[in-house]
Design a protein around this nucleic acid. Structure first.
Lengths: 213, 213
DNA sequence: CGTCACTTTGACCAGACGGTCAAATCCAGA
DNA sequence: TCTGGATTTGACCGTCTGGTCAAAGTGACG
């Protein structure tokens, strides 16, 4: 198997294992708190061996972040401008919540990066993220203009969706501490968020002024 | 000035300076990222001198957290069970948002601690925090029963308030990246949050069935 | 002025950490 | 079986970090 230009089967497998381990450790300890030794141990490799696949600790971190933003924005990207507005929005909210539920490590890694001021992500945020959000915000604005959704600022509406969904992943300890052991945060969140956003999104005055003769 | 039992004027002043500096550094770099030297420099002291006032780095951190939770819960504590429900809730939301706006370092410090699983705060969360939230949640539940507020789960309603208000402080870089430089996140947030929660809180059916003869 | 508790500091230490390197091991293909 | 690149590793290095310590400085009060 002469290596034409890129990865050996082992390289592919090892890199994946390292990223998986890195996600675990970075999400739990943060960038500064994570140690190369710790990641290597979690990946079942020796430290020098890990450094054979990624030159630095930072390289692992940025590799993770790179793949992350895409995944994180997928639900928003999937918002269909030609669908039914309320259905589309509620589906987006649900997708986002399930993403946070099923990938809490990714959510926390992302949150940690932003909390620290996004030193490794600044560019992505103000370019890729902003473009996508602006595009979707204008779709939402159109829906509001058409009277299909209650009027509000689309950007802040999106923020509210992010804030609420990620809260359950990023602040899970707090949520659990408050709710106690008997309750199921995620199941409740799913129901409550739908109720919450139905209220927020439902247009208040039905846009039919002349059907009461 | 023989020291009867507690602090010298210098001790008071130095401890305060150290906590202030610690807040700065911990909020920006996280617990692991912060260095004793860094905090000492920010406080204008030498490292051993700082360690003369606080025995360890952790001691500074927990001292900060201790004072923090109280401050952080004040707006919720101030919720008046005998006030007008909608007014009280909107006032609470506004207080919480202004707190996040005026004390973003505190907000981020808190967020970082929770993100990491609240290793130094577990107790406080599941005791003090939980008690207060349970108490206020039952007040809110009573308001809902009386038809003064739309029905929903009070705990999750509180979560939604926390999530939305703190989002603007903790994820400020992201918010700014998306909104661009021309817009003022905090001013907009104030207006949007009021609109948002008016919708969420306003009871849907006015509880007066017999005043249309 | 002398005392004594309070305060400050330079020098130092042990451990942890990110990263390097040369040597060893593995393994697919000839 | 031999070969050469891919892979793995133990030993090592310089730096950083949390924390210690003995000694020096400071100032209020007798």
């Amino acid at each position: 198997m002469t290596n034409g230009e890129s990865a050996t089967r082992i390289q592919v497998e090892r890199r994946a294992r390292i990223l998986e381990a890195g996600l675990d450790v970075f999400a739990a300890e943060g960038f500064r708190g994570a140690t190369v030794d710790g990641i290597a141990r979690a990946a079942g490799l020796s430290k020098p061996n890990l450094l054979y696949y990624f030159p630095t600790k930072e390289a692992i971190y940025v590799a993770l972040l790179g793949g992350l933003l895409d995944m994180w924005l997928d639900p928003l990207r999937a918002l269909d401008p030609s669908g039914d507005p309320l259905t589309e929005m509620l589906a987006y909210i649900r997708r986002k919540l399930l993403l946070a539920r099923d990938f809490p490590r990714e959510s926390r890694l992302f949150a940690g990066e932003i909390l620290r001021g996004a030193p490794e992500m600044g560019e992505m945020l103000s370019v890729d993220l902003r473009e996508l959000v602006d595009a979707r915000a204008s779709v939402i604005a159109r829906w509001m203009d058409a009277g299909c959704l209650a009027r509000s600022d689309p950007h802040h509406l999106i923020f509210s969706i992010w804030a609420l969904t990620q809260h359950y992943a990023d602040f899970e300890v707090q949520v659990r501490a408050v709710l106690g052991r008997a309750r199921d945060p995620w199941a409740e969140a799913e129901a409550e968020l739908e109720r919450h956003f139905r209220r927020v999104l439902k247009p208040d005055a039905p846009p039919a002024p002349q059907d009461r003769p």
